[in-house]
Design a protein around this nucleic acid. Structure first.
Length: 486
RNA sequence: CGGAGUGUAGCGCAGCCUGGUUAGCGCACCUGUUUUGGGUACAGGGGGCCGGGGGUUCGAAUCCCUCCACUCCGACCA
């Protein structure tokens, strides 16, 4: 009867043990599980359904920026990545390397690699190099620019410490790669694509973010400028959500992406790259989840409205089925992702399953509702049956978009309040030290950007595992946010 | 890759220290009855290479060695 004592569907609670809570939410929501390969996960239908919805939203926005989708190979010749010193420096330690192309009998009942490759391939950790190689071929004149490409792909980084969604050895993402004739265009592009990401975070995922610039030490290997969105998880740690890089001429020089300008001279292009990954799903969990599990913002909920029948006997089903189907069809006609759950099983269990999976709206129908032409509506963002409301079917159908929007707003505002309340202004390194020495304190600290040149900073940062998260645009580059991060 | 911990049924755990019947419990699952509006109740039942390999022993979930995986704290990173 332990479950009855627990008022929460997930144990431990966030307060008791946040990392363990995170794992349990993923399990309870049936989103993903570990695979036989270290650091790699199986994304189950509910987790992948969320990713597909995120993809659709982001892909539409990317296309609206006149970027075209393409696909580049998984394997990259070793020589490509070796062309750019800074780049290889950043990724060398986490590259998977393909050295053979055949298997043969090892004489002991097993198999061994054979057919050693003359030049090994690496499994892409990112694709700047192989795309740069193509761009060099495709760009001849200033008329070929800008060239804007995106690919949806998997990449592999051999991580030392994998965590579901947040840091897996293989992950899914989109990587955009744009090339321009001028430095200004590239700089603007990096900033614009960051804004596309911010739009997805705020208006699709309901996650508030701080837009800003990375410090030089935190830049992407090979970038001259890295822009980031930093989100705050419910344990006060930062999650670097997305990054957009101004690569300057690093890769255009490394791969000879040259064009003939109007004046007839050969010039190197200016490039950007920008990525958004499945890590985001981890951000959704840690931003919105509660002690009953996942809470999904409606725009990425595979099921937005779950209709759950309360059946006493078989005679009920005959009457409730048309009632539920009627509601289901009306919702579908409005492009609401609704499901009518007529499967065998107890209504209470179905309710809890939807709670754990984060379904935004639950509708209960029974003989009681049927007789009065009403339904009972519960919202995942307002837990507890005291918030359950009984409304006429027509009224509910008319207002469903508003309800979903309201849930989105509510989740966003809750997270926004948390973010702002957990940013503390601090004016000296002594205060910084004092702040993080108190275990009760969490979140980000905001300091004058000049602190980055203070020799006293590094010791404190190392001691408390802090990093500069970003130099936010909203403070005109005068401030820096510091915090612990994932 | 360093430090710490954990691997026993789908999930959560006990048993291990002090080796010895058919390896237990709760939830989930199956059958039946009973119930039905935030996880009904009772009864019966199915499901385990006790993470893998090696060793010690008459005998290993239990002791020793060694791999592997997972989790946490770091270093590194989306």
């Amino acid at each position: 009867m332990q479950k009855k004592k627990n008022k929460t569907a997930i144990s431990p609670t966030r307060d008791e043990n946040f990392p363990e809570w995170y794992q349990q939410v993923i399990k309870a929501a049936d989103m993903a599980e570990n695979s036989a390969v270290r650091g790699c996960m199986v994304i189950k239908p509910h987790g992948y359904g969320i990713w597909e919805l995120i993809q659709k939203e982001l892909d539409n926005r990317i296309k609206a920026e006149d970027v075209e989708n393409a696909y580049f190979p998984l394997l990259i010749p070793l020589s490509y990545i070796a062309k750019e010193a800074e780049h290889i420096d950043g990724f060398a330690t986490e590259c998977a390397v393909v050295t053979h192309h055949r298997l043969e009998d090892d004489g002991e009942g097993g198999l061994k690699p054979a057919g050693e490759l003359a030049e090994p391939y690496i499994v892409r950790p990112t694709s700047e190099t192989i795309i740069g190689e193509s761009m060099a071929k495709w760009v001849n004149s200033y008329r070929d620019l800008p060239l804007k490409l995106n690919q949806w792909a998997n990449v592999m980084r051999w991580e030392m410490r994998p965590r579901m969604f947040l840091r897996t050895a293989e992950f899914l993402w989109q990587e955009g790669h744009n090339a321009f004739a001028t430095a200004e265009e590239a700089a603007q592009d990096a900033r614009r694509m960051l804004e596309v990401y911010a739009d997805v975070f705020e208006n699709v995922l309901a996650i508030p973010v701080k837009r800003g610039q990375k410090t030089p030490e935190e830049r992407f290997p090979g970038a001259i400028d890295t822009l980031t969105l930093e989100a705050m998880m419910q344990d006060g740690k930062a999650l670097q959500a997305c990054t957009s890089h101004n690569l300057g001429q690093t890769f255009s020089k490394g791969f000879d992406i040259k064009y003939q300008a109007e004046d007839g001279n050969q010039k190197h292009a200016w490039t950007t790259s920008w990525g958004f990954s499945t890590r985001t799903i981890g951000g959704v969990i840690m931003t919105h989840g509660d002690d009953d599990g996942l809470r999904l913002p409606p725009k990425i909920a595979p099921t937005q409205v779950a209709i759950i029948p309360f059946i006493r006997d078989d005679a009920d089903i005959e009457k409730l089925q048309p009632y539920g189907d009627g509601l289901l069809n009306k919702l579908k006609a409005k492009n609401i992702r609704a499901r009518f759950d007529l499967s065998e099983g107890r209504a209470g269990d179905k309710i809890w399953n939807h709670i754990k999976k984060g379904t935004p709206v639950r509708v209960e129908i029974g003989m009681r509702e049927l007789e009065e032409g009403v339904i009972s509506v519960s919202r995942r963002d307002k837990p507890g049956k005291e918030h359950k409301q009984t409304v006429p079917v027509g009224n509910f159908v008319d207002n469903i978009e508003d309800i979903l929007n309201d849930i989105h707003e509510n989740l966003y505002n809750e997270a926004k309040t948390y973010l702002e309340q957990n940013i503390t202004d601090v004016s000296s390194t002594e205060e910084l030290e004092k702040f993080y020495s108190d275990q009760e304190n969490k979140g980000f600290v905001r300091m004058d950007v000049s602190v980055l040149k203070d020799p006293a900073l590094e010791t404190i940062m190392t001691k408390h595992a802090l990093t500069p998260r970003c130099i936010p645009f909203e403070d005109d580059g005068k401030k820096v946010l510091i915090g612990k991060s994932y």
